[in-house]
């Protein structure tokens, strides 16, 4: 059952920031994640602050440097069907298209997708686990098929977003408005590892909202994609996935950014893979080596060591499909 809360719909970002600075206030964009969390009593809300009236958070437009500005309220469906995004930043378009289901993509926003809460079933269920301020992490000794093989400590969620890894690969920046003014944070630095703080997923402070995401211009000789492996065809989070942003020169990889999804509490960049790829042609040998590098240092839990071959397979397939 939903808790009872105050509902406010500010007209300006300043008003929104003010309302969100109150204790117990929650931002509401498309509501596809927030309302589920409230209904399932994952957390409480004193006030729900709708962002839907904020014109500044809407729309997709070109930036001066041929990059792109995406308002935080841009829906996943808009991103998935945007011709320019598909051409210049394919990993993002594919990530958005791979998320959830058509209904949810029509309603869910980019800002909300980045700030959605984890899907760990203990977190969502009737368990007072560590991330909810309780104890312990039930996943460690429990049912951890869908949990992290990298970056866990004290909590082993995987980040649920299918747009986060592409945005990290594409070196996107989040613009944030808050009580102390605005700031820019690279999406790569937006997320928080449990070792730093296992009770939150982003660096956003109380009262802060993401207003827009900035994409740098497409890379010269750029190629990219997002590959997601899931247990069913729709309405399902990644078992493992990979976002690639490569720039090619003379048939070889000039630079590469490779970010895994579904394997760690944050989008998991794998510099070892990027190193393997640099200067190499995209052939079977390179792909196999890159795949091997992608899982180096993985620490599977009792029920998820399948993620090692799965991620290897996904990386290999992804690279070969760009060859």
């Amino acid at each position: 059952m939903l808790p009872s809360f105050r509902y406010v719909r500010p007209r300006t970002v300043a008003e929104a920031v003010k309302a969100l600075s109150e204790p117990g206030a929650r931002a509401h964009a498309g509501g596809t994640d927030l309302v589920g969390c409230l209904r399932d009593e994952v957390f409480d809300a004193k006030a729900v602050v709708s962002l839907s009236g904020l014109a500044e958070l809407k729309g997709i437009s070109a930036t001066k440097d041929r990059g792109l500005r995406l308002g935080a309220l841009t829906t996943l469906a808009e991103i998935a069907r945007h011709a320019e995004i598909a051409k210049g930043w394919p990993a993002l378009a594919q990530g958005a298209a791979a998320a959830a289901s058509p209904q949810l993509r029509n309603q869910g926003t980019l800002g909300g997708n980045l700030c959605q809460r984890p899907r760990c079933w203990y977190f969502r269920g009737d368990f007072a686990c560590a991330r909810k301020g309780g104890e312990p992490c039930y996943a460690v000794e429990g049912e951890n098929t869908y949990h992290a093989i990298f970056g866990g400590s004290g909590c082993y969620i995987v980040h649920p977003s299918d747009t986060a890894s592409p945005l990290v690969a594409l070196q996107a920046t989040a613009r944030i408005a808050g009580p102390k003014g605005t700031r820019s944070v690279p999406v790569e630095k937006l997320f928080v590892l449990p070792a730093v703080d296992h009770t939150r997923e982003t660096v956003l402070e109380p009262g802060e909202v993401i207003t827009e995401i900035l994409l740098p211009p497409p890379l010269a000789g750029g190629k990219g994609l997002y590959k997601k492996v899931r247990a069913r065809g729709a309405w399902d989070f990644a078992l493992g996935g990979v976002a690639l942003a490569l720039s090619m020169k003379d048939g070889k990889v000039w630079s590469a950014r490779v970010v895994l999804s579904g394997v760690a509490p944050i989008p998991w960049r794998v510099p070892e893979v990027e190193k393997v790829l640099a200067g190499r042609a995209l052939d079977a040998k390179t792909a196999a080596e890159a795949a091997e590098a992608a899982v180096k240092g993985a620490e599977p839990m009792s029920g998820n060591d399948y993620k090692i071959p799965l991620v290897k397979g996904a990386v290999e397939e992804a690279l070969l499909s760009l060859a």
Binding site: T145, V229, R230, A231, L239, N304, D305, Y306, K307, I308, P309, L310, G313
Partner: peptide, 12 residues
């Protein structure tokens, strides 16, 4: 499922 099958394919 992919988890079960990929583990079997990899001999795990």
């Amino acid at each position: 499922t992919p988890p079960r099958l990929v583990a079997l394919l990899a001999g795990r």
